[in-house]
Design a protein around this nucleic acid. Structure first.
Length: 490
RNA sequence: GGGCCAUUAGCUCAGCAGGUAGAGCACCUGACUUUUAAUCAGGGUGUCGGAGGUUCGAAUCCUCCAUGGCUCACCA
């Protein structure tokens, strides 16, 4: 905008001069509403119908080839591209001048007859054109596109213009979310919205962002999860609810983490985690099929197969399978610590058996899980909101789905015992007092809600960005978020 | 936050035994009335990310800083 923008000099100057020329001809370089009668792609897909018909299309000029008193250009709209043919004899000298002055990147509207060139390319023989927006900045190169990842993220609009596969990813993202909504709506779930700004951030183990409300003179946290509010709705009798929206976590950024990310959470009264397993694999495999037209997708050299049913493995069995360590016979904290150390892992002397089980799993098992797999039976210490397993009260009726070494979903039978919940929160609060910034805060209001009676329920969370990464074969979360978090420049 | 790597024209990239910056595309001028990475003839449009330092001389070597990527840590 400021000095640097003005210094862009030659290329920009030339375009500013062209802009002035358009104005001096009495033309508006930043035009008005333009009524199209079709899209580029439709003409190409249905040439039989469109041949010799008059088409009105609008879009961006992506390339230009001039030959004296005639020439070509390619126009791009949301659906694709089509070639335009301009001929001085048919267009008139004035309009042909406009074509000559036209820059790659300009937005124009045209009307003309659909035909096929001698070389066989479906084209529009333009007999009228109007300026819709003059571009003052040149587009990246036509052949290599925009490669610089930093520019791609900072100027996503340019990325979308010149890299068609990027547009495809975000179209698929939209389709996938729409399919999820359709699926859940059909099953009688109610979509709801709960607070993004919360006085007590709960429902996950994470550090929150803090903000401040001036009129109330109070700090609020951006939510790390909607969970505790959605379960209050179960208390209220909304038996099947879901929410798809952003969560915010004040943590590191990586190819798998963006500070704000999209999460699906759903809760179903009178169900449990096994119902959630069936729902999860059905929901994801259906959505993947609808978006890709296939249950298989390639990701980093692996073929991921979403075909159901998915493998189900108890967490301790998975650890035993991949490390040889059997935690069923390591039944106290000390022997668990020694077991983990025997694998070469560093273990805190204060770590409990359940925490160690989790650490061993994350360090040695996660990386082995390529195809969709349910891992169930998490220790109670790392699952403060999940119902205990009846036979093994030190474990919970909880599962996570792993695909391509990534955690995609997390679900459990919801803890609806307010007394147990109170105790779990107390333990978390103690850890918090001991310096664990990610431990849960005590939420008295949530306990009070539980005391009114929450039905037994299954709850499920799915990381939408990560699911879209898988379904579109995108290795970085930034490839599926339109405007990923970046430091501002300078 | 740590480690490694990158940053040169609008874009994609060369140039680095240190000698004062290049190519393709884009752009400008001209030719060409069905081309398509159009072609042909001419034209480099630059704070070599920023600031110091070494040197007669730095895009190139050193230090610090900035931004980004990968990775580790933390999480989803």
């Amino acid at each position: 905008m400021s000095e640097q923008e003005q210094k862009i000099s030659e290329l920009r100057k030339v375009r500013l001069e062209k802009l002035q020329e358009l104005k001096s001809l009495g033309l508006d370089p930043f035009g008005q509403r333009f009524e199209r009668n079709t899209l580029t792609r439709r003409i190409i897909d249905d040439f039989e119908f469109w041949e010799n018909q008059t088409a009105r299309v609008a879009g961006r000029i992506m390339s230009k080839r001039r030959h004296g008193k005639a020439g070509f250009a390619n126009l791009q709209d949301i659906a694709g591209r089509i070639q335009l043919y301009f001929r001085a004899d048919d267009l008139g000298e004035d309009k042909y001048e406009l074509y000559k002055k036209m820059d790659i990147g300009d937005l124009i509207g045209i009307e003309g007859q659909v035909f096929r060139t001698q070389k066989g390319e479906i084209s529009i023989h333009v007999h009228d054109m109007v300026y819709l927006s003059k571009a003052l900045h040149p587009l990246p190169e036509k052949w290599h596109g925009l490669k610089d990842v930093e520019l791609r993220y900072r100027q996503r609009y340019v990325d979308l213009i010149v890299n068609p596969e990027v547009k495809e990813v975000f179209i698929k993202r939209s389709q996938l979310i729409k399919e999820i909504r359709n699926y859940l709506d059909d099953k009688g779930f109610l979509e709801v919205e709960t607070p993004m700004m919360q006085p007590i951030p709960g429902g996950a183990a994470a550090r929150p962002f803090i903000t401040h409300h001036n009129a109330l003179d109070m700090d609020l946290y951006l939510r790390i999860a909607p969970e505790l509010y959605l379960k209050r709705l179960l208390v209220g009798g909304l038996e099947k609810v879901y929410e798809i929206n952003r969560n915010f976590r004040n943590e590191g950024i990586s190819t798998r983490h963006n500070p704000e990310f999209t999460m699906l959470e759903l809760y179903q009264a009178y169900a449990d985690y096994e119902v959630m397993m069936e729902l999860t694999e059905d929901l994801i495999s259906n959505a993947a099929f609808k978006v890709n037209g296939s249950l298989q997708v390639e990701f980093e050299g692996h073929i991921i197969d979403f075909t159901t049913p998915w493998k189900r493995v108890q967490m301790l069995d998975a650890i035993k399978e991949h490390t040889g360590l059997d935690f069923n016979s390591l039944d106290d904290d000390e022997s668990a610590r020694q077991g983990a150390r025997s694998l070469g892992l560093e273990v805190d002397d204060r770590a409990s058996r359940g925490e160690i089980i989790n650490e061993v799993f994350e360090a040695r098992v996660e990386e082995k899980l390529i195809q969709p797999t349910f891992i169930y039976g998490h220790p109670v210490e790392i699952s403060p909101l999940a119902k205990r397993n009846r036979e093994h009260p030190e474990l919970t009726d909880r599962f996570e789905v792993f695909i391509m070494q990534r955690e995609i979903a997390n679900a459990f039978s919801e803890l609806n015992d307010p007394i147990d919940q109170q105790e779990r929160f107390a333990k978390q609060a103690a850890k918090r007092a001991g310096g664990d910034a990610e431990a849960h805060m005590m939420d008295e209001d949530y306990i009070a809600a539980l005391e009114y009676g929450m039905p037994p329920a299954g709850g499920l969370g799915i990381g939408i960005d990560r699911l879209i990464m898988l379904i579109t074969g995108s290795p970085s979360i930034r490839d599926v978020i339109l405007f990923p978090t970046l430091r501002p420049r300078e």
